[in-house]
Design a protein around this nucleic acid. Structure first.
Lengths: 214, 214, 214, 214
DNA sequence: TATGAATGAGGCTTCATTCAT
DNA sequence: AATGAATGAAGCCTCATTCAT
């Protein structure tokens, strides 16, 4: 399966040092979005990345483009985790569980903008990355359902939205502090997803895509 | 049991119309914080409340004071829900479950700032409101544990933090849309909290208070 | 004939001091647009007006709104000059001539944005002001044509565009310096408009409105 | 008569390809200044010229130097037109008239900065180019005055300033649109300059040079 | 007391200019 | 010599907060 990397998305060959700058910006932005929420000043991101503010704009025409790049790249990382877990042959629920915890470590909460109206959720890059991720997670959940370990009334959206939400650090809180609890709460949520179902769920499941019109 | 009301917190007797203004501001602010996130302009809150912007400042010296008032009042409402559930005599887990769903309807996600470093979590009003709420929820959980329905390795902080997080609307998304999923995810989380425990939890439980130095 | 004043355009009753501030902003903006071109920093306009920069934005939502106000108000002033000249009973060409020179003194060159694509020439306020002015100038020219003093092959657009252009101060030049020549060149242009025509004109006349699609 | 060419102004021998680059930059800059006004970004000029932005700086130390080069080269072109008209033997006013219209086609409006305080009008290159042009136009006007076709109370400055002004495209307007009217208005102005004078001119004539302290 | 208006600090973005390849 | 990338200084606009009526 072909993996679309961020580099492939933004193709035009960059010089070695420019590429390094771009990477530093993306890394800084991911950390700061997760830590301080999506409103961090771009100037702060530039400072953390060790570049001038205008360098951010050379790489990303506006704020949305930077946020989109972060969302896409984290989506790729999460998809990568799902792919790795699919490649294991052991217990299916265990694989799902490890995927969930690994996603939190990959800062899956950076996907938060994907759920916001103030974000172009239909951008082609984003749609492609999201669909790939969803298909992989779908398979992971399917395997666990077939093994009778995952309750059948939950969908990809239920899982991913909840994981994003539970791992979101409170705005302005150091995310390191938050990490202390996240895996604990994710574990509780995972236990609630095990088969057999302990209750009937209200509402209906949703994919991330459906959020568009939800 | 004595309930501390917002009016008692800000003691000086207000004229009837001034009191009504204050209430309208708080109501508008709660709705708009939940709907539009914590960055909503105060002028917009004033407009929604139908008062001039300066009236907001007459009632709350600065933005933090208003946020604190919202947090305190929602804490009160949530505590009220816990109290009501404690007053019922039926199934203990059912009471806890109803409390959780009711909290979401009371916009418990407005408590989010309580978990933020950028917020004075030690303010006396806040400490009082939080401790009262925690004691009531603690009792609710205690009853369910004694009935063998709630796994014993979870604490008040696990529950409240998770409920706040799962019910947080994505920044910039209408919360109405979000409501479609929240109760579903809360239900999954509740199922994960039922006894018997289906897994061992990592980390340790935490009270909201501990978040301060966590 | 009812005159539409700027105050009537922006109707909502303002406090006395706020109205004074608004007037000061408009005055400063008119002078600086004429003197330095349409790119003067708004902060400089605010400084010259003696108000904070945000006060400009309170009165005019964005830069375009301020420019439009200037254009409308100068259009009104120019129309006023035309009306006064129409009220005189003397020589028709003399009236037209005095109108042209008076327009320059009223800073008619501030109408320059009216000829720019980067400007909403269809705004209702602007359309109303422009049409009123054009009708008055049309009458003034008609009278001179009927008296056999103005060549019949020129139109309102020919006159107004040329007057705007000839009286435009070079960007960055003190307009006071420029005034030394403007009336001289306007006089030459007026002489060229006298009947009998001394040559055949290329192209066709145009109204300012036609510039839209020109 | 010795003609000072731009190449002679910036003496050091350039390689053929470097010279070609320089020409492309000047051409692109002239077009874009006329079309988009004096604020067009240098990066855009470089793009239109098909070179990197830094190449512009290699050829012109700063923005002013580029503007000066444009002004000088247009001045040369205009002088060239005057020279050609002087070489004709027909009607003197006709020659002057053709010069005026040809100047507009040569984008004489690019001389606008020559009238701005924010521009070093005393730069040797500029002074030389301007004086040469003025002398040629002076001769052209002299011939017409001697033939009794041009009113004697007008000077070179009157003509050149007016031609520049009348042919200036409004900032932000495509100059093509503007061309529709320019020749028409120039013709009216020319008619006003014919002898016999139809009125007395206010003020005094001026050379472009006098603008410095005017 | 309640209000609309005023303010200055700060964030986003652009651009002339400099630097490194 | 030529280029793409980097930079910091503005300019525009918003918003929390203060002032004057």
């Amino acid at each position: 399966m072909a993996t679309v990397t961020p580099e492939q998305r933004t193709a035009p060959r960059l010089r070695a040092d420019a590429l390094r700058n771009r990477e530093r910006i993306v890394t800084a932005a991911r950390e700061m979005f997760v830590e301080f929420g999506p409103d961090v000043p771009l100037d702060e991101i530039a400072r953390r990345a060790g570049v001038g503010n205008a360098t951010v704009y050379r790489n990303f025409p506006d704020r949305d483009a930077l946020v989109r790049e972060i969302v896409c790249s984290v989506t790729d990382r999460v998809a990568e985790q799902a792919e790795q877990m699919l490649a294991t042959s052991g217990d299916a629920f265990e694989a799902l569980s490890r995927f969930v915890h690994a996603s939190a470590d990959e800062r899956v909460s950076a996907l938060c903008p994907m759920m916001s109206d103030a974000f172009d959720r239909q951008h082609p890059d984003l749609v492609a990355a999201r669909e790939r991720m969803e298909q992989l997670v779908e398979k992971l959940m399917e395997r666990a359902k077939e093994a009778g370990q995952l309750r059948p009334d939950v969908g990809v959206g239920d899982l991913m939205i909840s994981v994003v939400q539970l791992s979101r650090p409170p705005a302005g809180a150091g995310c390191m502090a938050h990490d202390r609890f996240v895996h604990r709460h994710l574990q509780l949520f995972l236990d609630g997803m095990r088969a057999p179902a302990r209750s009937e769920l209200p509402g209906t499941t949703a994919t991330l895509e459906e959020l568009r019109r939800a």
